[in-house]
């Protein structure tokens, strides 16, 4: 059984579709949720955490319907995007209270300390939330999501307001939690952050999952948007001619390196996997030494730009 099963999920706000027949099976590990504003990320997260009821379809958390079965939420931790808190409480008392609301009882204090330690919030545990900085509040929010050691974590923009060092710590924490068997769903508008911790990415736009899976696979699906590869080789002209002849590339641009006579090749590759399979043999056959092979636009941001462009009927 998959930790999270989303089947035929649709959510309508009047005549506006927040989500449109979404089908997702999530495994343990980290899944990134990417999409522009209004794509349906928050709606999906709210349905996943039992705050909104699906208009159609179902969401199963470890086999249980999260809207109909409140006890399913015991295995779920959620850090909302909003910066709202019980301002008069201290960080520790807030996290402890949330733990007690999850049924931790007398052990809530120990669990709260552990969650605060994990998120690096222990040093300001006694501070009132209204006196905390944005970064501290983000850590407190994460700690309340972790306090009862849930199997599934839903984190909406969890790294907002956290400094670069803190972000690295948090990403490391997510990786540790995922390695220990947790299922983590993270949304972020900073795609590099998501790419850094997972290659399982769900791309949402206008309430639809427009692509999902490892970034490279998704990228490979984009025939109309060939991957740009930068190649530094000992004989770029010969290599370029052979590549065009083989049909592995649909376009080549020769790019002179700054202040030098040498040229690099910028290849347009429609079928990434076929290219990677054939390219080494082809270079060997020509006796060309390849010094560098770098994808120029395989970042999630570029992929998302292409996908959304395609989905909307245009090109990126």
């Amino acid at each position: 059984m998959n930790p999270v099963s989303i089947r035929e999920l649709a959510k309508w706000y009047g005549e506006i579709a927040g989500l449109n027949k979404v089908n997702i099976e999530l495994q343990t590990g980290i899944t990134g949720l990417v999409g522009p504003n209004g794509a349906g990320k928050s709606t999906l997260m709210k349905i996943l955490t039992g705050q909104l009821r699906p208009s159609y379809g179902e969401v199963l958390i470890l086999g249980e319907d999260v809207w109909k079965t409140p006890s399913a939420r015991r295995r779920l931790g959620y850090a909302p995007e909003g910066d709202s808190f019980y301002e008069d409480m201290s960080v520790l008392s807030f996290v402890r209270a949330m733990g007690r609301l999850c049924g931790l009882g007398g052990s809530a204090d120990a669990f709260a300390h552990e969650a605060l330690r994990q998120t690096g919030a222990l040093e300001f545990a006694g501070k009132r939330l209204k006196a905390c900085s944005k970064g501290m509040r983000q850590r407190a929010k994460l700690a309340q999501a972790l306090v009862h050691k849930p199997d599934i974590l839903v984190l909406d923009e969890p790294l907002n307001g956290i400094d670069a060092g803190g972000r690295r710590e948090m990403l490391r924490l997510f990786e540790e939690l995922a390695a220990s068997g947790a299922t983590i769903i993270v949304s972020s508008h900073i795609l590099e952050e998501i790419e850094a911790v997972t290659d399982q990415i769900l791309f949402l736009a206008q309430g639809n999952v427009i692509a999902s899976g490892p970034l490279a696979e998704v990228r490979g699906l984009l025939k109309d948007h060939p991957l740009k590869l930068l190649v530094t080789a000992s004989d770029p002209r010969r290599l370029g001619a052979r590549l065009i002849e083989s049909g592995l590339v649909t376009g080549i641009v020769f790019q002179r390196r700054r202040g030098l006579e040498e040229e690099d090749l910028v290849l347009s590759v429609p079928q990434v996997e076929s290219f990677y399979r054939a390219f080494p043999g082809l270079a060997r056959e020509l006796g060309v030494v390849v010094e560098r092979l770098v994808p120029l636009d395989a970042s999630a941001e570029a992929v998302f730009g292409y996908l959304v462009g395609e989905e909307m009927g245009g090109g990126a």
Binding site: Q51, A72, Y78
Partner: peptide, 15 residues
């Protein structure tokens, strides 16, 4: 008003 209802509604307590 304080937007803290979310912290209660995600707990394993029926609504």
């Amino acid at each position: 008003e304080d937007k803290t209802l979310v912290y209660l509604s995600i707990r394993p307590i029926s609504r």
